[in-house]
Amino acid sequence: MSIDFCWRPLDALPPGQPGRVMAIGGGRGLALRLRSLGIRPGAVVRTVAQGPWRGPVLLEVDGCRVALGRGIARRIFVQPLP
């Protein structure tokens, strides 16, 4: 299976696939909040589960699990890692 290495929003990262955070959209407050949970440009994240019906994304970052609403996950851009 070939992996597409283009940036994509976090909610488009298939579960189990690791990705590197490249950019975070939105304001300073959101950026600070996400950074305090380890979600910052350069961090490696992995989707553990996705809630159905446009539900949130369960992420693993820095050995810790974080739930992000879909609206926030869409503003985080990741590059899939092999």
Binding site: P56, L58, R65, V66, A67, L68, G69, R70
Partner: peptide, 10 residues
């Protein structure tokens, strides 16, 4: 608000 940001402990 901006949406859910919630740490899920082990």
């Amino acid at each position: 608000g901006p949406g859910l940001i919630l740490e899920i402990p082990p």
